[in-house]
Design a protein around this nucleic acid. Sequence first.
DNA 1: ATTTTAATATTGACAGCGTAAACATTAAAA
DNA 2: TTTTAATGTTTACGCTGTCAATATTAAAAT
Lengths: 213, 213
Amino acid sequence: MNKWCCPKGRKSYHHGNLRQTLVESALDILKEGTLADLSLRALARKAGVSQTAPYRHFKDKEALIAALKEEGMRKLGEGMQKLMEEEKDPLQRLQKLGMRYVQFAEKYPAHFKIMFEYELGDYDKYTELHNVSDNGFSCLQRTVNECLALPGARKVAPAVAQFSAWSMVHGLSVLLMNQSLIKHMKEDHFVDLGDRNQIAEMVTRSFSESLVK
Amino acid sequence: MNKWCCPKGRKSYHHGNLRQTLVESALDILKEGTLADLSLRALARKAGVSQTAPYRHFKDKEALIAALKEEGMRKLGEGMQKLMEEEKDPLQRLQKLGMRYVQFAEKYPAHFKIMFEYELGDYDKYTELHNVSDNGFSCLQRTVNECLALPGARKVAPAVAQFSAWSMVHGLSVLLMNQSLIKHMKEDHFVDLGDRNQIAEMVTRSFSESLVK
DNA sequence: ATTTTAATATTGACAGCGTAAACATTAAAA
DNA sequence: TTTTAATGTTTACGCTGTCAATATTAAAAT
């Protein structure tokens, strides 16, 4: 009585939750590959679905990428927010927030790159992405403010210190991700340039400490 | 006596200096477009040459991109090296070096992105690129060292301060380039978040000053 | 000056990509 | 039960990077 049902090897004509599957597959690819390895067609193939099926869930490739950004920002933001409760000392927390940021970049470099290096045509269109992103950033900002309120804090405009903190931690992430850039550093008796975690620890601590006397 | 000479509208069968032309056209495109707008075929068309002609000068697209990186690193490095002679005060110079870096990113964002965000498959293959890049970075490093030798300087391992400086200035460049990221900053009475130059000035100065008491 | 060779160009082809248009199937709403 | 909206499919177009085979010519060797 069935016509011959379902495109090959699927139980129903409809996939069920293609959108989520696509996002997850994409993240999967990004774990071992780069943005260049990410194609809608490849995702469709992986999901066992026709090459235009993704277009029912994403207007275009950019929309898929926006979803990946959102996913990453959410995860990064959650990690940082958890630190807001776990660590009450502002200076310590500032350092730990930085480490979270750096470690995210180290663990998911391709995902991180998409989050920060892929520019959307119209950022404002993706309001949920904007909200989610705000989460992590505001942790950083609030913590910087707390540091500046500490006795003996350096006198800097909050926005300047916030910008500095964010710049520092972002730049650090990029530099550490980039094997080749590290090669431009000269060797040093106190620092093992091969140990990225040590570098991150020292730089973030140094920044934290620079905010107070 | 001519066979019918030359592919349409060229004086000789050979182009003359196709390699340079391609690089310049590429930089041209990057002035108003992005890496996504850059295709070998488009460059070939622009140069009035067949679509495979570029392959006589670049092994593949990546090789062309490496040339673009090199061009940018050379320019950035030269600008920074000039500052080494112009400004003798280390703290002042450190700040100005940072400003150069940031301004380069602001003026040639797409080029900057290629320089730092496009990862070559095999960086070591491009030794000239490596040398040229070293120029600018070592200016930053030497200047940081001079600052640390100043009376009243903070006690930090040189490599840590160098890494911090570079991270700071690179992260700052990225953040300022990214219109959308700035939106996540809260407004501030002392800083005009719309004035990227002012932000850069304040952040770089703040960093410079943080190295000495 | 003539021949040989290496550099530089061309045409044609292939597979992969993003995505638009037209149509099919089915789950959910009326 | 019928209608409709959501979710699929097929086919097609133009773009891309790049390969193989071939042509032209400037420069080197004779």
